[in-house]
Amino acid sequence: MELVLTSLLFFALIATAIAIALVRRLFAVVMLAGVFSLLAAMLFVLMDAVDVAFTEAAVGAGISTVLMLGTIALTARSEKQPSSYSLVPLVIVVLTGLVLIYGTLDMPNFGAPDAPVQQHVGPDYIRKTPQDIHVPNVVTAVLASYRGYDTLGETTVVFTAGLGVILLISGLGRRPRRRKRGDD
């Protein structure tokens, strides 16, 4: 059952990704990106990462879709037809893929309990969380308490990005605008 669901999700994910590459209307691209995020969230649930799943659904399918819609409203509606097709990107991508797949050959099987990832601090956190933190959700305990400073650093990154966005687009519309390209 789980295998069937996972294969279906993978099929849908790859189909969505290829559709994003082919579609030229940017509105469709943004919507497909939202679909991709929701499918990814489902896959995260199947892989036991429930916290990641709801963050991905809220952030990937929610906020980022809204931001991208705002961007296409301010810029262009569709992608220009390319003047020439080149094989170079495809060659680069296939070569990268071969190297990456060669890298996976050494990895432990999916779901193996004796994989190196499962050996060190992960089980420790699960064992100690009930005594140390008294919350049942281990992900929350690690995120907010054991590695709380990392989360503080993360909020600094978000703050900096927000500052950058404000500096970049403040005064938009007050500056004299160039003539808009007719892209409809």
Binding site: T55, V138, R147
Partner: peptide, 25 residues
């Protein structure tokens, strides 16, 4: 399942949306 990758990726998703919004700006 191991909670540690989940924590790392939670952080990465939030940082990812921050960089995306900067790129969009």
């Amino acid at each position: 399942s191991n909670p540690l990758p989940h924590v790392l990726i939670l952080t990465a998703i939030v940082v990812g949306i921050a960089t995306t919004s900067l790129g969009l700006a």
